[in-house]
């Protein structure tokens, strides 16, 4: 690995830690550095312990992990599809995953077991990524692919609207709204532990595709000639992005655009190599979501802002900016 990359990854990891620490410090209950540190090592008043260990820390970690999952999935999908606009949110993967999760809530399947929700979200994400990749292979046009993604996204949105329309009571309606808007409020370490194995598997598969993603810069034909097993590369990225995105959605609902913004910001620092984008993009997306979530908590609004709403407000303009800035004939 290039020395600059280690430096970049080190800096971003430090930023992640700093952001998580800040998330533990800031909030409606005033806790000084001393009390937070005491709580972190377990030597504090019960009230402080609850605030840090059961509210702020799991919430910050949820934001960090969700961001990392979306950032790395975005970077990998962009590498596979050779387009900087590919992202789980834009391609309808997050929407499909949260639709599947909503189904599980709607039919009360959560009672079957705690694993029902993440498994449903991941199944939804995998179905969407598989459909998209099949479309990508068949038509070979990235524009068509994005249009398929938009269609998928709209369909999932429509189904979600239908479910909300038919919601039996205001409580399940509020529950569903949470999934569509995206939030890391009230997450516990149990929720994170449930998603962790899927996230880890997703990260491992995406990182296993590193070399292939570099070579795909040349285009599929030349990459195949250079020794890339295209089917294996596609499978790794599709299943990896499906697992990671599904786990992210199971944790925080649908949060869009971080998967575009983070890789875009990182890319020129790693010489535009898709492989070297993966880890820095994941870390930066995590930092962005932790910071955005701090903003959400501190914003003096009557109803709490949803993280997904804030992420979209920041990310959508960046998406338009990247899309408008692309040169003609570049896909």
């Amino acid at each position: 690995m290039v020395r600059n990359d280690r430096l970049l990854i080190g800096l971003l990891a430090a930023a992640g830690l700093a952001a998580a620490a800040a998330a533990c410090l800031l909030g409606s209950t005033r806790l000084g550095v001393g009390r937070v540190l005491a709580a972190l090592v377990g030597a504090a008043a019960p009230g402080d312990l609850i605030v840090v260990w059961e509210i702020r820390l799991p919430r910050a970690l949820a934001a960090l992990l969700t961001g990392a999952a979306l950032g790395m999935s975005g970077a990998a999908l962009q590498g596979l599809l050779r387009n900087p606009l590919a992202e789980p949110g834009v391609l309808g993967v997050s929407a499909t995953a949260s639709l599947a999760a909503t189904f599980v809530i709607y039919y009360g399947l959560v009672q079957v077991g705690a694993f029902a929700l993440p498994v449903a979200a991941i199944a939804g994400a995998l179905a969407a990524t598989a459909l998209l990749t099949a479309a990508a292979v068949r038509v070979g046009s990235v524009l068509t692919l994005i249009l398929v993604g938009i269609g998928l996204s709209s369909f999932a949105g429509a189904m979600m609207a239908l479910l909300m329309n038919l919601a039996p009571n205001p409580f399940s309606l509020a529950d569903m709204l949470n999934w569509t808007l995206g939030s890391v409020a009230n997450r516990s370490f149990d929720d994170l532990l449930l998603a962790a194995p899927f996230l880890a598997a997703g990260f491992a598969l995406l990182l296993a595709a590193r070399r292939d993603l570099s070579a795909l810069t040349l285009g599929e034909e030349a990459a195949a000639g250079a020794g890339v097993d295209l089917r294996r590369a596609r499978r790794l990225v599709v299943v990896g992005a499906g697992l990671a995105t599904g786990a992210a959605v199971a944790t925080a609902g649908a949060i869009g655009f971080v998967g575009i913004v983070a890789p875009h910001l990182v890319r020129r620092l790693v010489d535009h190599d898709p492989a070297r984008t993966l880890v820095p993009a994941a870390l930066l997306a995590g930092v962005i979501l932790v910071l955005a979530d701090i903003g959400v908590r501190l914003a003096p609004t009557a109803a709490e802002l949803r993280l997904g709403v804030v992420a979209a407000l920041i990310g959508a303009p960046v998406f338009i900016w990247i899309a408008a800035g692309r040169r003609l004939g570049n896909g």
């Binding site: 070579a215 810069t217 034909e221 020794g227 890339v228 010489d271 190599d273």
Partner: peptide
């Protein structure tokens, strides 16, 4: 060496040649 297609990313010349070692 297939017919030349545009590269997906503005990578360095060195990195493209290095992909020959994939």
């Amino acid at each position: 060496l297939p017919q030349v297609r545009p590269l997906a990313w503005p990578v360095r010349v060195r990195d493209v040649v290095a992909l020959g070692r994939f």
